[in-house]
Design a binder for these strands. Structure first.
Lengths: 232, 232
DNA sequence: ATTATCGCTTGACATTTATCAAGCGAAACG
DNA sequence: CGTTTCGCTTGATAAATGTCAAGCGATAAT
């Protein structure tokens, strides 16, 4: 681990408020590593020895069952993963792989549990983070069960437009086949859903997205903070 | 609140390990109430003022969007709800109603947050509970995205058979239309899925279920602890 | 006892989504 | 530079799931 990593880690919500002493203890045992794209970091069912934090890059969490696979979520800078498994000392429910060259911190789960016991501020941050993740998954289930795939796509586009500054034009942050899996459909159907949004002012070619009739799109998508806003 | 409730509450995992003093503080502000069936306890989008705990009875958490509704989960004795919202001081993502006459503890969210700051054992229990809930929802998403509705039904039956003692005959713990919604299908399709399981030794009439060829059913269902075991 | 209600089931049908096969085009590679 | 690979798209078709309407039977209400 490079010394230059330390301030970046320290400034993450999970570590920002904790005592210097506890932070030092956590960081002492930490590994920071660069991984190439498409590297499997964790495997579903394995025991969880490290809490992972994405310093830089992109990580996909996915799950398999009976020859099928689905993308569960995409993690970017600042995101943590396998916190719940690390805390409960339970097997991973998801596998994880890098999508691009990524820099990952790995904190021994044992250290995390020990510091959690000692440092209140850290315990508080862990709970906040866990509650945040929990609410994220609940929103995901609501989207899956209450919306059709075209509606999910429409809301995904609106969400990213907002996240990327509200410009009418922006770039898809993901390969389409992965986006399809995140949204719970096949790549073929994503293509068709994209076509279905054309009358609502959505022009997608390659990675580039242009939303020309945002109001029409919103009428279809009916976004709500209780599903689509990662905060709140 | 009756004094006779106190030992029952104290023995729940969330409160078992905490200091007497903290427990007293929590319980001082608590309400315990009996609700009739079909009572709305919390509403999606509302601010969350109380952490709820089911002492007795059954509560359904559900969500709405655009004239549609879906059941998210069914809670029974000992379950907590709206912990994440209470901790984060955020709006409810789900609504909740009683399905039968139920006895519910309500702890002011503010007290929960305050005691959380003071009492380590309680903080630890909260984190464990949250991580448990998080993993539950993740398992739910995996089931929804990786399995067909017949497969979800098959696994649901096997799970409840196990939970109710492993007997070949048992009773559905839920109305079928709610089961359908939990499993992410319509009541009509649940009827058809039940028929589709007949060749696998599943006989359902009314609430009563009989599984005559468990091995055949398991071959279809392919249960895995990483989706179907609430613990682990 | 009679009637009304309600949850469940069934059939016919529509819609949505997945699968399979083929082809296109940009990027990667020899 | 040509070739290959790979992700994406499209069309045809199949499978899964939802919708609508009707009827059944148990339970609740009158």
């Amino acid at each position: 681990m490079r010394d230059s990593d330390i301030p970046a880690i320290r400034s993450l919500p999970l570590f920002r408020e904790m005592a210097d002493e506890s932070f030092t203890e956590l960081v002492r045992g930490a590994y920071v590593q660069n991984f190439p794209p498409n590297m499997e970091l964790i495997v579903e069912g394995d025991q969880c020895d490290f809490l992972h934090i994405v310093v830089d890059g992109t990580v996909e969490l996915f799950a398999n069952w009976s020859d099928r696979e689905t993308a569960m979520t995409i993690l970017r800078e600042g995101a943590t993963f396998i916190l719940a498994a690390a805390i409960r000392d339970a097997p991973n429910l998801m596998s994880g792989r890098t999508l691009e060259r990524s820099r990952i911190i790995m904190l021994p789960a044992e250290d995390v549990r020990r510091v959690f016991e000692k440092d209140h501020a850290f315990a508080r941050a862990v709970v906040m983070e866990l509650a945040y993740c929990y609410r994220g998954v609940v929103k995901g289930v609501k989207g899956l069960k209450l919306r059709t795939s075209v509606e999910r796509l429409a809301n995904y586009l609106l969400k990213w437009q907002k996240k990327l500054g509200g410009n009418s034009q922006f770039s898809l942050p993901l390969e389409k086949r992965r986006l399809a899996s995140i949204l719970g459909m096949t790549p073929e159907n994503l293509s068709r859903s994209i076509k279905a949004l054309r009358p609502y002012g959505v022009e997608i070619s390659g990675q580039s997205v242009k939303i020309t009739k945002p109001d029409d799109l919103k009428t279809l998508a009916k976004p709500t903070p209780l599903i689509d806003d990662p905060r709140s």
